[in-house]
Write a protein that binds this DNA or RNA. Structure first.
Length: 882
RNA sequence: GGGCGCGUAGCUCAGUGGUACGAGCGCUUGACUCACAUUCAAGAGGUCGCAGGUUCGAUCCCUGCCGUGCCCA
């Protein structure tokens, strides 16, 4: 076969789609149950169904695919279960935007029509992200694809809701919740983001009812004055003790409210007296409960003042604030206004300032559910990688509040609760009830709200495998092996999956949680639309290929740490893909007459033993690091080996045999080249699936695809004692190259060399492998002289372990320069010797350090002394010559 | 206020109780050498944040401090 027509630049276009199609057609992604074997399972963190692939997805899914491909090659029945999430708020927002362009609101359409629109939207865009994952090379089992709103998962959601309700772990009640006036829905506590803001704090006088003066309270939200039902002070506060029990008149409102004492009040903050608005502040709400205060809600769901706000009714909360400030000032109630920096809660979706509000909602009682979820992690049955996230997780669950799960949206799982219009009974049921279980009435109305999207994704690891049915998949693939996700959703998702799994499966949902960091831009900034600094992964794929994107995302990646991504980085990875391509091209071009087979051990030369030995090391290392989810280090190891050792050294040395006359040597070298290349391609496959497949299919191979070939293993017979001797030869080559470079010897001009070896071992080593030095250092011939022979006069020299090499320069030598160079080398050797000696004369070191370490130092000392001796002799000779 | 991460070559980051082996980019010098100029060769460049402690030995372990970023309250 003629390989010379293979282009010298790798072009991923066509190649990638071709192989993805091939893998799919061959059913390689499909997980098959094999009861004899232990499975390896990952469930995908389901992306938003109408979303598109961003760089964070690319990173996260690349890591999953690497682990899946690696384990698949190791022979595990491997399942990567894909799917998408209906993403209530986000999806509704998009469809609402679309409607707005037509001048419509979702209320204009009504629930049913609106949902039709959303489903249509989902049909249109739901495949986008799936196709993008395929572009990335994701080897998901698409036959098991799930969507959080599909029938099976919806059944799981209902089942969980009903069981928790029956157990008393889900309840409905009037509590303070976070309300987003833009999204017009409640939010759970973690959906509120706190941000420091520069604001004002208003000191307002509340006159005593008896006319004996006033008490001053401080607030950042004056509009809530309208809903105040008390003023609170700390019982220990001397300033106010006498006033406790009195009443004050609420400015502009006229309502008489009591002054109460409560430990919660911070005497140091503001004036030490606080207004209490149970309907619009979580702490005030608690205080209201303790003191039996009335709850007066003054705002509606759009953040406008309601009928309880009197003449302010209809004003937006901020307009109302302005109006109140003006009027309080005019009427002499405003004592002062100060600047204040405090943190303000905002909606994580739309950044609107969240309004705490009392409202009737559904909640999950968290304490009983949190405990097993804490225990399972403490017992190490679920392990976070890196470990430090364990503490964050446990700390959160230990301080958890009840979870508000009802959302005032239409897109989602409707709450399976019905209210009897006749008797007011609440019916929670798996099936839609036809009549009231209490009064038998048939006018039942289902709760209009839907569940928090995270409620359904919390069930993901088992609902996707068929739960609540006892399916084969569930029995075999659960618990899953590892969850790969970002630290930003540990609370949202990871914790919730764990407590739901402990409640319903009585077993952890996954053994490991591999945490990834954020992908930032080249300057370390978060990628964002507003900054315009985002990099579209599809653009990277389009330009450089998916392998390049994957590799670029892996290198320098440490679990749990943020990484930076830039086009430069992508280019470097592209170069690596091209390097693999060209090295493979070289091997293929030199396989003429190749007879497949293992390299015959007894025929191997030092360079062969060295590269096989290094391949062995790298195989172990890559395996070990992938097992620890350290894809960054694994990538680095295989990169270094491939580029620096295989390409820069072994291939260059292999040319000696390939282009030489010894047919046997050629045959042997072909086998080594092939073996190393083929195995390193397999090591690379999980990282760069496409280019490795493309090349592998061109190479002689057994099996249908590299993706289902066996993961390479350490081979004991490739462990060679003398492999390290290669380093001496490499030092010799580097030394001569160095001399040539310093003396500006043109690359085309071959040099002569004289070797003076100190011991027979080194002499033999150099003699046997002199062709390596000749080829790589461009030396035409070498004379070997003995210890007793004088060194060549006008020559440059380099000292390696056990020998020195001279390059006669025929009068071109700049003696002074050479002397200066040697003196520098002498000084550096002397420094080394002095540090080594310091250790070797230290009794503590000699008696306490491990013997190998001491012996290593001794050997070092011997080597350095010998090298120093040679340098000194050389210096002396040159000085005399000068 | 509590918790956590980071601080190593000009830049971006790896890394380990035993001389920092670092890597990429950048920089200097040379080469279109028959796989690759998306390349090859050679080189310069670091008190591994500061101060203590543990240890025969610490960049890597402990304590404090400084700078920086994040999470939670």
């Amino acid at each position: 076969m003629d390989f010379t027509n293979i282009p010298s630049v790798y072009d991923p276009k066509n190649v990638e789609d071709k192989w993805y199609r091939f893998w799919e057609e061959q059913n390689f992604f499909r997980a098959e149950i094999d009861p004899e074997k232990e499975p390896f399972t990952i469930v995908i963190p389901p992306p938003n169904v109408t979303g598109h692939l961003h760089i964070g997805h690319a990173l996260n899914n690349t890591i999953q695919d690497i682990l899946i491909r690696y384990k698949r090659m190791q022979g595990y029945p491997t399942l990567w279960l894909p799917g998408t999430d209906h993403a209530g708020i986000a999806t509704e927002a998009k469809v609402k935007e679309q409607l707005a362009e037509e001048g419509l609101s979702k209320y204009d359409l009504g629930r049913e029509k609106f949902l039709e629109r959303v489903w249509a939207w989902k049909e249109k865009y739901g495949d986008t992200i799936v196709n993008q994952l395929k572009k990335l090379g994701a080897s998901c089992d698409w036959s098991r694809f799930r969507f959080t709103l599909d029938e099976g998962l919806s059944r799981a959601v209902r089942e969980v809701f009903v069981r928790l309700y029956e157990k008393g772990l889900i309840y409905r009640g009037d509590y303070i919740v976070n309300w987003c006036p833009t999204c017009k829905t409640t939010l759970s506590d973690i959906e509120v983001e706190h941000e420091e803001r520069n604001d004002k704090i208003y000191h307002v006088r509340y006159p005593f009812s008896d006319g004996s003066g006033h008490i001053t309270v401080a607030t950042t939200r004056p509009e809530t004055i309208l809903g105040d039902t008390a003023v609170a002070v700390n019982p220990e506060d001397e300033r106010y003790r006498a006033h406790i029990g009195k009443t004050v008149v609420l400015p502009l409102v006229g309502r008489e409210i009591p002054i109460i004492a409560d430990d919660y009040v911070d005497m140091e903050f503001g004036t030490g007296a606080v207004k209490v608005t149970p309907a619009h502040d979580p702490n005030d709400f608690e205080m209201g409960l303790r003191h039996g205060l009335p709850v007066i809600k003054v705002m509606d769901e759009e953040g406008r003042m309601n009928e309880n706000a009197g003449k302010f009714k209809g004003l937006d909360r901020y307009e109302c604030r302005k109006a109140l400030i003006r009027e309080l000032g005019e009427k002499g109630y405003m004592e002062k206004i100060e600047d204040l920096t405090h943190s303000v809660g905002q909606c994580y979706r739309c950044d609107t300032v969240v309004e705490p509000m009392v409202s009737k909602q559904w909640f999950v009682r968290m304490k009983p559910l949190a405990e097993p979820a804490i225990d399972v992690v403490k017992q190490g049955r679920v392990k976070f990688v890196p470990e430090r996230f364990t503490k964050i997780y446990i700390n959160w669950l230990e301080n958890i509040h009840d979870w508000c799960i009802s959302r005032q949206l239409w897109w989602g799982h409707r709450i399976p609760a019905w209210y009897c219009q006749d008797c007011g009974e609440t019916i929670v049921s798996r099936e839609t009830p036809v009549k009231c279980s209490k009064c038998g009435g048939s006018s039942l109305e289902q709760d209009p709200d839907v569940l928090d999207t995270w409620f359904s994704s919390a069930l993901w690891p088992f609902s996707t495998l068929g739960w609540p049915d006892d399916t084969q998949d569930l029995r075999y693939f659960y618990p899953t092996s590892v969850l790969v996700t970002g630290y930003d959703i540990i609370f949202f998702w990871v914790a919730r999956m764990i407590f739901m799994a402990m409640e319903f499966m009585k077993e952890e949902p996954f053994r490991y949680v591999a945490i990834t960091g954020l992908v930032r831009d080249a300057l370390g900034r978060k990628m964002s639309k507003s900054l315009g600094n985002g990099i579209d992964p599809l653009e990277v794929i389009e330009k450089y290929g998916a392998d390049t994107l994957r590799f670029a995302l892996c290198t320098g990646n440490t679990p749990g740490n943020d990484i930076r991504f830039s086009w430069e980085k992508a280019e470097h990875s592209r170069n690596f893909a091209n390097k693999i391509w060209n090295a493979s091209r070289f091997v293929m071009m030199n396989l003429e007459g190749f007879e497949p087979g293992e390299p015959e051990l007894e025929k191997l030369s030092l360079k062969d033993r060295w590269i096989l030995s290094r391949l062995n090391d790298v195989t172990s290392e890559v395996t070990e690091f992938l097992d620890k989810f350290e894809v960054g280090i694994a990538a680095q190891k295989v990169y270094d080996f491939f580029w620096s050792e295989f390409c820069d050294w072994y291939i260059e040395m292999a040319k000696i045999d390939l282009y030489g006359d010894d047919k046997n040597a050629k045959k042997k070298t072909q086998r080594v080249l092939y073996t190393v290349l083929e195995r390193v391609l397999r090591l690379l496959h999980p990282l760069m699936p496409f280019v490795t497949e493309e090349i592998w299919q061109h190479l002689p191979h057994e099996g249908r695809s590299i993706m289902v070939s066996a993961w390479p293993e350490f081979r004991p017979e490739w462990k060679f004692e003398d492999a390290g001797d290669m380093e001496i030869l490499m030092d010799a080559v580097r030394g001569i190259r160095n001399i040539r470079a310093e003396m500006n010897v043109p690359p085309a001009k071959k040099a002569r060399a004289v070797v003076r070896a100190g011991d027979s071992g080194t002499l033999k080593l150099l003699r046997q492998n002199i062709d390596i030095i000749h080829t790589l250092a461009r030396v035409s011939e070498t004379d070997f002289i003995s210890e007793e022979d004088p060194a060549p006069g006008k020559a440059m020299s380099c000292v390696i372990r056990g020998a020195e090499i001279f390059i006669p320069m025929e009068g071109l030598v700049d003696l002074d320069a050479e002397i200066a160079r040697l003196q520098k080398e002498k000084a550096s050797l002397e420094k080394e010797i002095s540090t080594v000696r310091k250790k070797l004369t230290n009794h503590g070191f000699l008696s306490k350090a491990p013997r190998e370490v001491v012996e290593k130092e001794r050997q070092k000392e011997r080597d350095y002394i010998e090298m120093l001796k040679r340098v000194e002799e050389r210096l002396k000779a040159l000085t005399e010559l000068g």
